[in-house]
């Protein structure tokens, strides 16, 4: 089997041992069975068990292994190792803009706090009917491109507005979720949801930079959803 060597530069920081973060140089042999970056990272961990990163489903649906790969946010399990430029070490860093717990593991508390702040659950105060609430296929289609979010945080941590105000700006992932419920015909809290976002920080920090759209591993478009929220606010105001 043909093998080749990949060079890595990996961000390392263990607050228990290290004074400050550093970049570790490490290389590894890969063969034809290694397709994705995560496969190779598992091999790297077999070589040096102290490299810490999160991973779970390895098929791009759980959102655990979001990293900054060669300067760009993405999921390790969906990143093809053949996509790396030859002869240059592959740079692996934790997601930018969130505190590092250790190595490639970031503290996502702030990210989830913002997600929770938009009340990410269906609000419908009518007594639940005996059967399902009806929804036409067309109305259901409105949720496509919204409900598929895996909360990996690639988008929010690539957003400069989120870097500056992670505590006040909801961020693309949270706003996408907010619109998911606004767009749901079964939800009755549209007004409250719009009220909750009408704020110079929470929604209007979005300056349509569109990094979120660029990096989303699921091909979703938070900017478009944010635009739709703004449209609804305008409609409501005039």
């Amino acid at each position: 089997m043909t093998t080749r060597t990949l060079q890595f530069k990996i961000y390392r920081y263990d607050p228990d041992q290290d004074q400050k973060p550093y970049m570790q140089d490490i290389e590894i042999e890969v063969d034809a069975t290694d397709r994705k970056l995560l496969d190779v990272m598992v091999k790297l961990k077999a070589k040096d068990d102290s490299i810490a990163f999160r991973r779970s489903c390895r098929e791009g649906v759980c959102g655990s292994d979001a990293l900054n790969i060669n300067g760009r946010n993405g999921l390790a399990c969906l990143t093809d190792i053949n996509s790396f430029p030859e002869g240059k070490p592959i740079m692996l860093r934790p997601l930018p803009g969130l505190p590092v717990i250790r190595d490639l593991i970031v503290d996502m508390t702030q990210f989830f706090k913002q997600y929770h702040s938009i009340k990410p659950y269906l609000i419908n105060n009518d007594p639940p009917p005996e059967r399902e609430r009806l929804q036409s296929p067309e109305d259901r289609e409105e949720l496509n491109g919204l409900y598929e979010c895996i909360l990996c945080a690639c988008c929010s941590t690539s957003c400069p507005s989120f870097w500056w105000n992670p505590d006040k700006f909801v961020g693309p992932a949270g706003l996408l979720a907010a619109y998911r419920f606004i767009a749901d015909t079964r939800d009755q809290a549209t007004n409250e949801r719009l009220d909750n976002l009408e704020d110079p920080y929470r929604l209007f920090r979005c300056h349509t930079i569109m990094n979120c759209v660029d990096v989303c591993p699921k091909g979703l478009n938070p900017t478009k959803a944010i635009g739709k929220i703004k449209d609804m606010m305008v409609k409501r105001a005039i």
Binding site: L122, R131, L134, S136, P137
Partner: peptide, 18 residues
Amino acid sequence: IELEHYGMPFDRTDNGRI
């Protein structure tokens, strides 16, 4: 049905059912 009431986005038939 409970799940549907929780907000799960099931696909729909033409008459709006799951």
